[in-house]
Protein backbone atom coordinates (compact mmCIF):
# COMPACT_ATOMS: atom_id res chain seq x y z
CA UNK A 1 0.00 0.00 0.00
CA UNK A 2 1.01 3.63 -0.38
CA UNK A 3 2.10 4.68 3.12
CA UNK A 4 2.03 8.34 2.14
CA UNK A 5 -1.74 8.08 1.87
CA UNK A 6 -2.30 6.07 5.06
CA UNK A 7 -4.91 7.80 7.20
CA UNK A 8 -3.91 9.07 10.62
CA UNK A 9 -5.00 6.90 13.55
CA UNK A 10 -7.55 9.39 14.91
CA UNK A 11 -9.05 9.89 11.43
CA UNK A 12 -9.32 6.16 10.86
CA UNK A 13 -11.01 5.57 14.21
CA UNK A 14 -13.51 8.40 13.68
CA UNK A 15 -14.22 7.13 10.19
CA UNK A 16 -14.80 3.54 11.29
CA UNK A 17 -17.05 4.69 14.11
CA UNK A 18 -19.11 6.84 11.73
CA UNK A 19 -19.47 3.84 9.40
CA UNK A 20 -20.37 1.12 11.92
CA UNK A 21 -22.73 3.33 13.94
CA UNK A 22 -24.69 4.37 10.87
CA UNK A 23 -28.29 3.21 11.40
CA UNK A 24 -28.65 1.91 7.82
CA UNK A 25 -25.49 -0.21 7.89
CA UNK A 26 -21.92 0.00 6.66
CA UNK A 27 -22.33 1.03 3.01
CA UNK A 28 -24.67 3.95 3.76
CA UNK A 29 -22.19 4.73 6.53
CA UNK A 30 -19.25 4.82 4.10
CA UNK A 31 -21.27 7.13 1.85
CA UNK A 32 -22.49 9.36 4.70
CA UNK A 33 -21.32 12.95 4.87
CA UNK A 34 -19.42 12.54 8.19
CA UNK A 35 -17.51 9.51 6.87
CA UNK A 36 -16.76 11.21 3.52
CA UNK A 37 -15.45 14.29 5.29
CA UNK A 38 -12.99 12.09 7.20
CA UNK A 39 -11.90 9.69 4.44
CA UNK A 40 -13.27 10.73 1.04
CA UNK A 41 -11.23 8.07 -0.76
CA UNK A 42 -13.11 5.29 1.09
CA UNK A 43 -16.37 6.22 -0.65
CA UNK A 44 -14.63 5.81 -4.00
CA UNK A 45 -12.32 2.90 -3.25
CA UNK A 46 -13.20 1.18 0.03
CA UNK A 47 -10.52 -1.48 -0.45
CA UNK A 48 -7.90 1.24 -0.07
CA UNK A 49 -8.95 1.55 3.58
CA UNK A 50 -10.29 -1.91 4.53
CA UNK A 51 -9.01 -5.04 2.83
CA UNK A 52 -11.42 -7.74 1.63
CA UNK A 53 -10.81 -11.32 2.80
CA UNK A 54 -11.02 -14.37 0.56
CA UNK A 55 -14.69 -14.76 1.49
CA UNK A 56 -15.94 -11.27 2.38
CA UNK A 57 -15.78 -7.87 0.73
CA UNK A 58 -14.56 -4.86 2.67
CA UNK A 59 -18.10 -3.61 3.25
CA UNK A 60 -19.27 -7.04 4.43
CA UNK A 61 -16.46 -7.03 6.98
CA UNK A 62 -17.48 -3.57 8.21
CA UNK A 63 -21.09 -4.75 8.32
CA UNK A 64 -20.16 -7.35 10.93
CA UNK A 65 -19.32 -4.51 13.31
CA UNK A 66 -22.28 -2.39 12.19
CA UNK A 67 -24.67 -5.27 12.81
CA UNK A 68 -23.18 -6.05 16.21
CA UNK A 69 -23.42 -2.42 17.36
CA UNK A 70 -27.19 -2.28 16.94
CA UNK A 71 -27.80 -5.92 17.86
CA UNK A 72 -25.99 -5.59 21.17
CA UNK A 73 -27.66 -2.34 22.20
CA UNK A 74 -31.10 -3.46 21.02
CA UNK A 75 -30.75 -6.58 23.13
CA UNK A 76 -30.15 -4.39 26.16
CA UNK A 77 -33.17 -2.18 25.46
CA UNK A 78 -35.38 -5.25 24.92
CA UNK A 79 -34.24 -6.58 28.28
CA UNK A 80 -34.77 -3.26 30.09
CA UNK A 81 -38.19 -2.39 28.55
CA UNK A 82 -40.18 -5.64 28.22
CA UNK A 83 -43.63 -4.14 28.87
CA UNK A 84 -43.00 -1.03 26.76
CA UNK A 85 -42.10 -3.41 23.94
CA UNK A 86 -45.20 -5.49 24.54
CA UNK A 87 -47.41 -2.38 24.32
CA UNK A 88 -45.80 -0.99 21.16
CA UNK A 89 -45.23 -4.34 19.45
CA UNK A 90 -41.80 -5.76 18.63
CA UNK A 91 -41.41 -4.00 15.27
CA UNK A 92 -42.48 -0.52 16.39
CA UNK A 93 -40.33 -0.89 19.50
CA UNK A 94 -37.27 -1.80 17.43
CA UNK A 95 -37.87 1.14 15.09
CA UNK A 96 -38.09 3.48 18.07
CA UNK A 97 -34.92 1.97 19.57
CA UNK A 98 -32.96 2.38 16.34
CA UNK A 99 -34.03 6.01 16.06
CA UNK A 100 -33.13 6.55 19.71
CA UNK A 101 -29.68 5.00 19.32
CA UNK A 102 -29.01 7.02 16.18
CA UNK A 103 -30.03 10.23 17.97
CA UNK A 104 -28.45 9.35 21.32
CA UNK A 105 -25.46 7.07 20.76
CA UNK A 106 -23.92 5.71 23.93
CA UNK A 107 -21.59 8.17 25.66
CA UNK A 108 -20.90 6.04 28.71
CA UNK A 109 -18.59 3.13 29.35
CA UNK A 110 -21.15 1.56 31.65
CA UNK A 111 -24.24 0.33 29.85
CA UNK A 112 -26.67 1.03 32.67
CA UNK A 113 -26.82 4.65 31.51
CA UNK A 114 -27.53 3.79 27.86
CA UNK A 115 -31.28 4.36 28.07
CA UNK A 116 -31.56 7.16 30.61
CA UNK A 117 -33.11 9.43 27.94
CA UNK A 118 -35.24 6.72 26.31
CA UNK A 119 -38.60 7.50 28.01
CA UNK A 120 -38.28 11.21 27.16
CA UNK A 121 -37.33 10.28 23.59
CA UNK A 122 -40.45 8.12 23.28
CA UNK A 123 -42.57 10.97 24.66
CA UNK A 124 -41.27 13.29 21.95
CA UNK A 125 -41.27 10.90 19.00
CA UNK A 126 -44.10 8.38 19.32
CA UNK A 127 -47.35 9.29 17.52
CA UNK A 128 -49.97 10.68 19.88
CA UNK A 129 -52.59 8.30 21.26
CA UNK A 130 -53.42 6.10 24.24
CA UNK A 131 -51.05 3.29 23.23
CA UNK A 132 -48.10 5.68 22.98
CA UNK A 133 -49.11 7.51 26.14
CA UNK A 134 -49.25 4.28 28.10
CA UNK A 135 -45.96 3.11 26.58
CA UNK A 136 -44.21 6.31 27.70
CA UNK A 137 -45.48 5.94 31.26
CA UNK A 138 -44.49 2.27 31.40
CA UNK A 139 -41.06 3.16 29.99
CA UNK A 140 -40.64 5.68 32.81
CA UNK A 141 -41.37 2.97 35.37
CA UNK A 142 -39.06 0.48 33.65
CA UNK A 143 -36.27 3.06 33.53
CA UNK A 144 -36.79 3.86 37.21
CA UNK A 145 -36.49 0.14 37.96
CA UNK A 146 -33.11 0.08 36.23
CA UNK A 147 -31.94 3.10 38.20
CA UNK A 148 -32.95 1.85 41.62
CA UNK A 149 -31.44 -1.58 40.85
CA UNK A 150 -28.04 0.15 40.72
CA UNK A 151 -28.68 2.82 43.36
CA UNK A 152 -26.34 3.22 46.34
CA UNK A 153 -27.10 1.10 49.37
CA UNK A 154 -28.68 2.76 52.40
CA UNK A 155 -29.77 1.32 55.71
CA UNK A 156 -33.50 2.03 56.21
CA UNK A 157 -34.81 3.50 59.44
CA UNK A 158 -36.24 1.00 61.89
CA UNK A 159 -39.74 1.20 63.34
CA UNK A 160 -38.17 2.12 66.68
CA UNK A 161 -36.33 5.05 65.12
CA UNK A 162 -39.60 6.24 63.59
CA UNK A 163 -41.41 5.82 66.87
CA UNK A 164 -38.85 7.96 68.60
CA UNK A 165 -39.93 11.05 66.63
CA UNK A 166 -42.33 12.80 68.97
CA UNK A 167 -45.22 14.88 67.59
CA UNK A 168 -43.64 17.94 69.19
CA UNK A 169 -40.59 17.52 66.92
CA UNK A 170 -42.48 17.59 63.62
CA UNK A 171 -41.68 21.25 63.05
CA UNK A 172 -37.98 20.49 63.08
CA UNK A 173 -37.62 16.99 61.64
CA UNK A 174 -36.75 16.15 58.05
CA UNK A 175 -36.62 12.59 56.73
CA UNK A 176 -33.97 11.50 54.24
CA UNK A 177 -35.26 9.10 51.61
CA UNK A 178 -33.15 6.20 50.35
CA UNK A 179 -31.23 6.80 47.08
CA UNK A 180 -33.13 3.89 45.53
CA UNK A 181 -36.53 5.62 45.45
CA UNK A 182 -38.22 7.20 42.42
CA UNK A 183 -41.59 8.98 42.43
CA UNK A 184 -43.49 9.04 39.16
CA UNK A 185 -46.56 11.10 38.39
CA UNK A 186 -48.15 9.40 35.38
CA UNK A 187 -50.96 10.08 32.91
CA UNK A 188 -52.04 6.42 32.66
CA UNK A 189 -52.53 3.61 35.18
CA UNK A 190 -49.20 2.20 34.04
CA UNK A 191 -48.36 0.22 37.15
CA UNK A 192 -51.75 -1.53 37.06
CA UNK A 193 -51.17 -2.31 33.40
CA UNK A 194 -47.76 -3.84 34.15
CA UNK A 195 -49.34 -6.02 36.82
CA UNK A 196 -52.03 -7.10 34.35
CA UNK A 197 -49.41 -7.97 31.72
CA UNK A 198 -47.62 -10.06 34.29
CA UNK A 199 -50.84 -11.84 35.19
CA UNK A 200 -52.71 -12.29 31.93
CA UNK A 201 -50.46 -11.30 29.10
CA UNK A 202 -52.47 -9.04 26.77
CA UNK A 203 -54.66 -6.57 28.67
CA UNK A 204 -56.48 -3.80 26.78
CA UNK A 205 -54.96 -0.34 26.53
CA UNK A 206 -56.56 1.63 29.39
CA UNK A 207 -58.07 5.11 29.15
CA UNK A 208 -55.97 8.00 30.46
CA UNK A 209 -56.20 8.28 34.25
CA UNK A 210 -53.64 9.98 36.47
CA UNK A 211 -51.69 7.58 38.64
CA UNK A 212 -48.91 8.00 41.17
CA UNK A 213 -46.28 5.30 41.34
CA UNK A 214 -43.21 4.74 43.44
CA UNK A 215 -40.32 2.49 42.47
CA UNK A 216 -37.89 1.47 45.19
CA UNK A 217 -35.37 -1.09 46.27
CA UNK A 218 -35.65 -3.02 49.50
CA UNK A 219 -32.50 -5.01 50.11
CA UNK A 220 -31.60 -6.12 46.59
CA UNK A 221 -35.13 -6.47 45.24
CA UNK A 222 -36.87 -3.80 43.17
CA UNK A 223 -40.54 -3.03 43.83
CA UNK A 224 -43.15 -0.74 42.30
CA UNK A 225 -46.52 0.27 43.67
CA UNK A 226 -49.16 2.94 43.34
CA UNK A 227 -49.85 5.61 45.92
CA UNK A 228 -52.96 7.61 46.69
CA UNK A 229 -52.66 11.15 45.27
CA UNK A 230 -52.39 12.84 48.69
CA UNK A 231 -50.04 10.14 49.92
CA UNK A 232 -47.84 10.70 46.88
CA UNK A 233 -47.80 14.49 47.43
CA UNK A 234 -46.77 13.99 51.03
CA UNK A 235 -43.97 11.59 50.12
CA UNK A 236 -42.78 13.94 47.36
CA UNK A 237 -42.69 16.83 49.83
CA UNK A 238 -40.69 14.77 52.31
CA UNK A 239 -38.32 13.64 49.55
CA UNK A 240 -37.77 17.26 48.54
CA UNK A 241 -36.56 18.09 52.07
CA UNK A 242 -39.64 19.60 53.73
CA UNK A 243 -40.02 19.15 57.48
CA UNK A 244 -42.65 16.67 58.56
CA UNK A 245 -44.97 19.47 59.60
CA UNK A 246 -44.52 21.44 56.38
CA UNK A 247 -44.96 18.33 54.24
CA UNK A 248 -48.21 17.36 56.00
CA UNK A 249 -49.49 20.93 55.88
CA UNK A 250 -48.64 21.27 52.18
CA UNK A 251 -50.20 17.99 51.11
CA UNK A 252 -53.21 17.46 53.35
CA UNK A 253 -53.55 20.78 55.18
CA UNK A 254 -56.29 22.27 53.06
CA UNK A 255 -58.46 19.17 53.09
CA UNK A 256 -61.56 19.08 55.21
CA UNK A 257 -62.28 16.06 57.28
CA UNK A 258 -62.13 14.33 60.55
CA UNK A 259 -58.81 14.88 62.36
CA UNK A 260 -58.83 11.34 63.75
CA UNK A 261 -59.38 9.93 60.28
CA UNK A 262 -56.51 12.01 58.92
CA UNK A 263 -54.24 10.86 61.74
CA UNK A 264 -55.16 7.26 61.01
CA UNK A 265 -54.37 7.66 57.33
CA UNK A 266 -51.06 9.36 58.06
CA UNK A 267 -50.19 6.57 60.45
CA UNK A 268 -51.01 3.93 57.85
CA UNK A 269 -48.92 5.68 55.19
CA UNK A 270 -45.90 6.04 57.43
CA UNK A 271 -46.16 2.40 58.47
CA UNK A 272 -46.32 1.39 54.79
CA UNK A 273 -43.29 3.52 53.94
CA UNK A 274 -41.34 2.31 56.95
CA UNK A 275 -42.07 -1.32 56.04
CA UNK A 276 -40.89 -0.58 52.50
CA UNK A 277 -37.71 0.95 53.92
CA UNK A 278 -38.09 4.27 52.10
CA UNK A 279 -36.38 6.46 54.72
CA UNK A 280 -32.75 6.28 55.68
CA UNK A 281 -32.18 9.19 58.04
CA UNK A 282 -33.68 11.72 60.43
CA UNK A 283 -32.37 15.24 60.45
CA UNK A 284 -33.32 17.43 63.37
CA UNK A 285 -33.21 21.14 62.63
CA UNK A 286 -31.93 23.51 65.29
CA UNK A 287 -34.75 25.37 67.07
CA UNK A 288 -33.66 28.66 65.56
CA UNK A 289 -33.49 30.62 68.85
CA UNK A 290 -30.58 32.97 69.04
CA UNK A 291 -28.59 33.36 72.18
CA UNK A 292 -28.39 36.86 73.50
Amino acid sequence: MNLARAPRLDTLERWMQAVVMHPQGAMPGVRSAPARRLLPQAAVDLDSVVLPSKALSAVERLDIYAHMYYARLLEILVEEYPTTRQILGAEAFERACRRFLARHPSRHRILNRLSERFPAFLARHLPRGPRSGLAVDVARIERAMEEVFDAPRAEPLTAAQFGAIGADAWQRVRLAVIPGLRLLKLRYPANDHMNAVRGKGQPRIPRPRASFAIVYRRGYQVFRRDQEPVQFRLLAALASGATLAAAVRGSVGGRRGNADELAARLGAWFREWAAAGLFSGIERQATGRRRR
Partner: peptide, 14 residues
Protein backbone atom coordinates in the same frame (compact mmCIF):
# COMPACT_ATOMS: atom_id res chain seq x y z
CA UNK B 1 -15.08 4.48 20.93
CA UNK B 2 -13.80 7.89 20.01
CA UNK B 3 -15.06 11.50 20.07
CA UNK B 4 -16.83 10.82 23.37
CA UNK B 5 -18.94 7.95 22.03
CA UNK B 6 -18.85 4.28 22.93
CA UNK B 7 -19.63 1.44 20.55
CA UNK B 8 -19.44 -1.22 23.28
CA UNK B 9 -17.48 -3.42 20.90
CA UNK B 10 -13.84 -4.35 20.49
CA UNK B 11 -12.73 -2.41 17.40
CA UNK B 12 -9.40 -3.32 15.82
CA UNK B 13 -6.51 -0.89 15.73
CA UNK B 14 -4.53 -0.56 12.50
Amino acid sequence: GVAGLNGHDLYPVP
